[in-house]
């Protein structure tokens, strides 16, 4: 459903991505891994059209993208209720209408209930814990998209238990509702267990294939740290 061909991106004169090509099929769960500065976040931003492309194409054949940015830029005292935050996910569906209709409000309610954030709907978003915030932002992403989730390091800074919960929620969306998932992750050990496919990025595609094949590859052995366990 998503096809990236020969994508190149240059930021501030430096090449960040070069000749990146891969495609994601409907219903797949793909994790993007790689060293810091390898262009993982930039790839997501290029798919969304937020950074200028120096070359190549990105084609989304069907559906709509729900995006969970790396971190929210809103300040610590930003006045926004959980409900307002989740509902803002429906922004893309507004078109030329000024207000949300019943369809959007029902969708937001459904998603909030499913992710267990409905009880917090009147609470202040900025006063939630890190894990609660990510849950709310995942709800917003599910409101924004139709069947493709783009997640940019959703578990950064979360404790192990909360991380596990968030992985479960993403997995649930993937398995039970058929969301296609494209997730940037620095947690490569979990990535290989949850994802169908791994995209290892280091300026260009260094590996793209199933998690099993990645684990068997030299790059995979090296990057998951298993090379050192034997020494």
């Amino acid at each position: 459903m998503l096809k990236v061909e020969n994508l190149s991106v240059a930021l501030g004169g430096a090449t960040v991505l070069e000749n990146v090509s891969f495609s994601v099929q409907k219903g797949e769960y793909v994790c993007i891994v790689g060293e810091n500065g390898g262009g993982k976040s930039t790839l997501l931003r290029a798919i969304l059209g937020q950074v200028p492309r120096a070359g190549g194409t990105v084609t989304l054949t069907e559906g709509k993208i729900g995006y969970l940015p790396q971190q929210s830029t809103a300040g610590a005292d930003f006045p926004a209720s959980v409900k307002e935050t989740v509902l803002s996910g429906c922004l893309g569906a507004l078109g030329w209408r000024p207000f949300y209709g019943r369809a959007e409000k029902e969708k937001a309610e459904r998603v909030m209930k499913r992710l267990g954030v409905w009880e917090w709907r009147e609470r202040s978003f900025s006063r939630l814990s890190g894990g609660q915030k990510q849950r709310v932002l995942l709800a917003r992403a599910l409101c924004a998209g139709e069947n493709l989730l783009l997640l940019d390091e959703p578990i950064t800074g979360l404790d192990p238990l909360v991380t596990q919960e968030l992985y479960q929620l993403i997995d649930q969306a993937h398995r039970e509702e058929g969301w296609t998932v494209l997730m940037v992750s620095h947690d490569v050990k979990t990535a290989v267990t949850v994802a169908d496919k791994i995209l290892h990025l280091g300026k260009t595609v260094r590996f793209f294939g199933t998690s099993e094949a990645y684990l068997a590859s030299d790059l995979g052995i090296h990057f998951t740290g298993r090379c050192c366990e034997h020494v």
Binding site: I65, S72, S88, G92
Partner: peptide, 23 residues
């Protein structure tokens, strides 16, 4: 403000996300 309220909220709260949603 009345007609653009929801877009103003999204733009103020999270410009990256608003941008990805077409605002």
């Amino acid at each position: 403000f009345v007609l653009g309220y929801h877009r103003i909220f999204a733009f103020t709260f999270d410009p990256d996300f608003a941008d990805a949603s077409g605002t």
